[in-house]
Each structure stands twice: as structure tokens, then as C-alpha cells.
Design a protein around this nucleic acid. Structure first.
Lengths: 256, 256
DNA sequence: CTTTCTCTAATCGTATGACTTTATCGCAGG
DNA sequence: CCTGCGATAAAGTCATACGATTAGAGAAAG
């Protein structure tokens, strides 16, 4: 049982039949149960799980094709695509990753990306934010403070905090990466539930980011956001049970 | 007539019927001919263009749903989604943008994203590159030098150059942004075909990035890549016929 | 024995029509 | 004015049939 459906609501309806099939197949591919070989558990094993018509099945496959997870060719069949082709930043693909087992390398990759992107987003937010943006970020921050750690509302507020900053940056392309950030946050929550200390410690850091944005100090906002990301990575990887010397060095470098 | 199908081959087959329908609808939505209101030109106007069955139409819609362009609800109909929901970084969505009229704000957004991301990618590439990576980047660079400017092979080589650098960075999530970079490059090509001077001038800059990566100098590679991006933005926006004072200031800041 | 060609068969793609589910809207009743 | 219930429109699902494409086997040629 996992957290799901936060961030922006994925248009791919999950209580629709084809959506369930898509999810089932996607998780099977992402988790590696289906390699880059033949997909389609013979189209009949599917019928075993849930009795679905060819229509529903095909529409599910179309969704997966659109996200790069599978490739269908006339005679050879529908195959699971190699990982390089997956749209890893697609919100659905990211959320399906949460259903599979944690893939440490991928989580690191996501955090690394976030480390490059989110400080820049914070800088832009500081430069471009409107009063409404501030209100939105503040509201999210209050949601984080006023609710118990790791409650659903709290997590939602955390996601909203980061998303609001992206929104304030006024860059549509950049904003699409908010779902990737949301994914890293959810990984954190999944992995370190119970470690309330780390969460509480991060609260002031969030506030500092907020004040930097309010004061329109781009460099400061970026630096503080970088610190936030690094800390998050460290505690997350710690929960994952691995050493992270390199990341710790990086923090010093980025926050100066 | 536009450049198309570079970068990684999109799995969404264009000579398949549902693919054509998807593209047609997507371009209509992206170009703004269909607003965030009712989609579905009544399912019959489509039959006017190309006579398509409900099956093909529905599968096309599923693809668009998967990419966030439309939302279908039982009673109210299938509507074009608001832009915030689009997966702007999806390779197909990006390439569909190339079919629509240039949207200056979006092009700027893409370049801005690229400015944040690609230097970091270059830095990682310098730190992590293998001999094979170098060979791939070099081969692409040679393709750029040895062919006439703006020829198809040349453009392809340019895209390959940048993509190879992303590959060398060894970060799957980051690599997904290569298609966004490819999109900006294609916009450049579309807008400033004929300006051979700008292209020829950029060649040494590419070579400098390459040598920095060869020498494993991360900071240098990042700085040089940043310069490349800014130059590209400037000449591109110039062709678009607008002033770009702010971007020029940025260059000084980033290359230091 | 190797190469090339053709032809088959498996699989995806497309077409149709009927039926089910969902949720909106309007009317009737409280 | 509010409440609820049923008509209704649109998407969703199912079943079936046929067409298009091509991998791969087997035949024919060298």
C-alpha cells in the first residue's frame, strides 16, 4: 500500500478499466518482471486476472506506447521497450515507479536532477513571484507546520510548497519537472516514515526558502533550496541504508 | 514543411491511422485552434477529413489523454485540457509544437530550462564519461564540421552531439530532457536557416566543450556549454525578431 | 552449401454495432 | 428553495470480423 495520486491529478483515470490494465502492465515492466522482450502475457493471462476485452487491452497498450514503455509492431508483437525510451519524467510513469520496488540508482538520478533544477526554479521564483504566488507558498508552508508529520495533509502540503515555487517561476517547461520533484518527495516519505526528527528539522529550512523568495533574493533562495534538496537526499539515502559520502561533499559546494 | 522525427524515434507511429489523427488533433490543440473547451469536432468532422472509425479515433484520444492534452469524462465529453496539464516535455508533444506556429514565450522557456540543465549535464559528462562516450561525441562533432550548414545530416549531427553529452552524464532522468534540448535546436534551425555565419561561429564552441569533457574538466565544460546555450538563444530570438537584452546580460553572468 | 526469393501465418490495425456505465440536467415532489 | 429521482448524452466496454504488415520458414536458384 503506497501513497498515490498526489501532485497534479493524472488524467489517466484509474478506476477506468483500461487504466487498471495500463497500470498493471506498467508496473510489471518497470519492476522488471517483464524485460525488454516479448510483452503481452499472451493476451489471455490478462483475461485470467481481469476479464477484459480486446478494446480495453488495446487502449491500455496505446497509453503505454504514448509513454514509451512498449513498442508495438505488426508481426513481431508488442514488446516492452528498453529503459532509454521510457518517458521517465511523465507523471504517470513516475507514479508507477512508486508502485514498484525502490530503484536506488533511479532515486539518486531524480535527486540529482532536482538538485540542478529546483534551486534555479527558486531563483526565478524570487525574481518573478507575484503576491498571489507568495500567498500560495505561505499557505502550503502553514499546512506543513500545522499538521502532524507524515500525515496525508502534511505530505500534500509539502508537495504543494514545492509546486507553488515552480509555479511562481513562470516557466511552463520548468514546471513540468514539478512532478519529478514530487516523486522524490514521495520516495522520501515512503522510505523514512517515522523519522519525525528529520522532518521537523527541515521545517525552518523551508521557511528560510520562503523568506528569501519574499525578499526577492534570488541567489539566497537558490542556495537555501539547494541545501534543502541535499538534506533530503541524505536522509532519504540513509533510510535506504547506503553510504552517501559524495552527496555530503556536494552540499558544502552548493550552499557555499 | 518542417524538420521532423529527429532525436529518438517516437514510438507513436505516424503512418498508422490513429497516429495521424492524434497528430492532427494535437496540433489543433497546441496551436490554439481548439481552446480548453469542447474538443471532438463532433466526431463527424473528423470523418470529413479522413474517414476514420471510432476505434482509430478513440485510440488517438487515448494517446492524447496519456500526454495530458485532453480529458475525457463520461457525460460532459472530451475536452482539450488547460496548458498546465500538458506534458510539455514529452517528445511527441514537443515535436507537435514544431508543427504549430512558434510560440515565443514557450521557446524562451525551453531555452531557459536548457540553460539550467545542459551545463550541469556537461559537467557530469566530464566527470563520468567513458572512452565510448567520447567517441560518440567526437563522431557527432565531426558530422557537424564535415557537412554543409543546415543540411539534414548536419542538424542530425548537432542533435546527436548534445544527446551524446547527456548520455555520458549517466543519469536516466536527466537524459529525458535531451528531447527538450533537441526541440530548441530544431526551433533554431527552423527560424534561422540561411544564417550560416552564426552556425559556423558556433563550431569552435562545440569543439571547446568537447575538449573540456575529454580533459575531465567539469567546471570548464559547464561554463562553455552555458555559453553555447546563451549564444544559441540570442541568435534564435534575433531571428524571431525580438530584442533580448536580458539574455545577453545572462551570458556574462554564466560564463564569467 | 549459401544466397535469394516467395509465400504463409501470426499479429497488430481498423471497422462496426450493440450494450453498459457514468454523471449531468431538468423535472417533480417535498 | 431544497431534495431527489429519473431521463439522457457521452464515454467506456464488449464482441466480431476483416485488412495490412512483416518475421520467418521453406522453396528455388546459384
Amino acid at each position: 500500500m503506497r501513497i498515490r495520486d498526489f501532485s497534479r491529478p493524472t488524467t489517466l483515470n484509474e478506476d477506468r478499466l483500461f487504466g487498471q490494465v495500463a497500470q498493471k502492465l506498467a508496473v510489471a515492466i518497470i519492476s522488471g518482471r517483464i524485460h525488454a522482450g516479448e510483452l503481452l502475457p499472451n493476451e489471455d493471462d490478462l483475461r485470467a486476472d481481469i476479464s477484459v476485452s480486446r478494446t480495453a487491452y488495446r487502449e491500455a497498450v496505446k497509453v503505454l506506447t504514448a509513454k514509451g514503455l512498449v513498442e508495438a509492431r505488426p508481426r513481431s508483437g508488442t514488446r516492452a521497450a528498453p529503459r532509454e525510451r521510457w518517458n521517465l519524467l511523465d507523471p504517470d510513469v513516475l507514479s508507477w515507479h512508486l508502485e514498484a520496488d525502490p530503484n536506488e540508482k533511479f532515486i539518486r538520478d531524480l535527486f540529482e536532477l532536482r538538485r540542478f533544477v529546483e534551486p534555479s526554479a527558486a531563483r526565478l521564483a524570487a525574481q518573478r513571484r507575484s503576491a498571489a504566488d507568495i500567498a500560495r507558498i505561505e499557505a502550503a508552508y502553514r499546512g506543513m507546520v500545522e499538521n502532524p508529520p507524515y500525515a496525508e495533509v502534511t505530505i500534500r502540503a509539502d508537495l504543494a510548497f514545492h509546486e507553488a515555487i515552480f509555479a511562481a517561476a513562470q516557466n511552463a517547461a520548468l514546471q513540468c519537472l514539478a512532478s519529478a520533484v514530487a516523486a522524490t518527495l514521495q520516495w522520501s516519505m515512503l522510505l523514512k516514515t517515522g523519522d519525525e526528527a528529520a522532518y521537523v528539522e527541515s521545517l525552518p529550512d523551508h521557511e528560510h526558502v520562503l523568506t528569501a523568495i519574499v525578499e526577492r533574493d534570488g541567489d539566497l533562495a537558490a542556495a537555501r533550496m539547494a541545501g534543502l534538496v541535499i538534506d533530503s537526499l541524505n536522509t532519504t539515502l540513509a533510510s535506504l541504508g547506503s553510504e552517501v559520502p559524495e552527496a555530503k561533499i556536494a552540499r558544502i559546494k552548493h550552499t557555499k
